[in-house]
């Protein structure tokens, strides 16, 4: 595929469907903060009762994620950051976009392995995912790693939205790009707070599930 279309597809997939799913994921997680275990379990059950859920997951999450992630690594490889000489705010966001992209990629691979992949293997059920999260966020090391992961993902999403608007020619002039910067950076703060509150919510005792095998998590910490 020619560079132009490959790059545009990368930009589009980052917002639709991946950005949309990211927001959906944030809302689902936030139900753990808002309504506790019962509310979270209900949200998970709702998602899993969607028709053709495997098709939806593959088409709107996994395939776009793989394309966006792999092509994104290539974009990050092509960059030669020069922030020492050009310490402008936009240039920092350019570099951070690539750094957070790589962090998010690694984090998502790990996170999917611990959650969705374990469900696919049959090691845990959907109902036990709250318990899986409890084990992750009550361990200080994985809690910090998860916090870094969600911060990186939130920045990458919000700043990616800003550059999506530029790359498709929606925000053209300097004023439009400045206003969209404020909007997107505000979004970064809100999304980060909501994800971190959700992580904290999973530390609640009610999510503790003794039936969840600790193997996978222990494996990573060791």
């Amino acid at each position: 595929m020619k560079g132009f279309y490959a790059r545009r597809l990368h930009s589009l997939l980052g917002v639709i469907p991946l950005g949309a799913f990211f927001i959906e994921h944030m809302i689902t997680n936030f139900s753990a903060y808002e309504g506790g275990k019962e509310s979270f379990d209900k949200s998970v059950a709702f998602l899993n009762n969607l028709p053709l859920v495997l098709v939806l997951e593959s088409l709107f999450i996994f395939l776009p994620l793989i394309y966006h992630g792999v092509y994104g690594l290539y974009i990050a490889y092509q960059a030669k950051p020069n922030n020492a000489n050009y310490g402008y705010e936009r240039n920092w966001r350019y570099t951070l976009q690539r750094i957070t992209g790589v962090i998010t990629f690694v984090y998502i691979v790990w996170h999917v392995f611990e959650t969705r992949f374990q469900v696919a293997l049959g090691n845990v059920t959907h109902e036990q995912l709250g318990g899986v999260m409890y084990n992750i966020v009550t361990n200080p090391v994985t809690f910090v790693l998860y916090t870094i992961g969600v911060l990186a993902a939130s920045f990458h999403f919000a700043n990616g939205l800003w550059s999506f608007l530029v790359s498709w020619g929606i925000t053209v002039g300097p004023r439009a790009q400045r206003v969209s910067s404020y909007v997107c950076m505000t979004l970064f703060v809100i999304v980060s707070i909501m994800f971190i509150l959700s992580l904290v919510a999973f530390r609640n005792m009610e999510f503790e599930d003794p039936t969840v095998a600790l193997q996978t998590i222990r494996h990573f910490v060791a």
Binding site: G3, R8, N82, R90
Partner: peptide, 20 residues
């Protein structure tokens, strides 16, 4: 021509150009 390889897709929005 801008949609050829090396064209406008190469921009990464660092915006150093306009500052320089």
């Amino acid at each position: 021509a801008l949609m050829e390889p090396g064209g406008i897709e190469g921009c990464g929005n660092s915006q150093n150009c306009v500052r320089s």
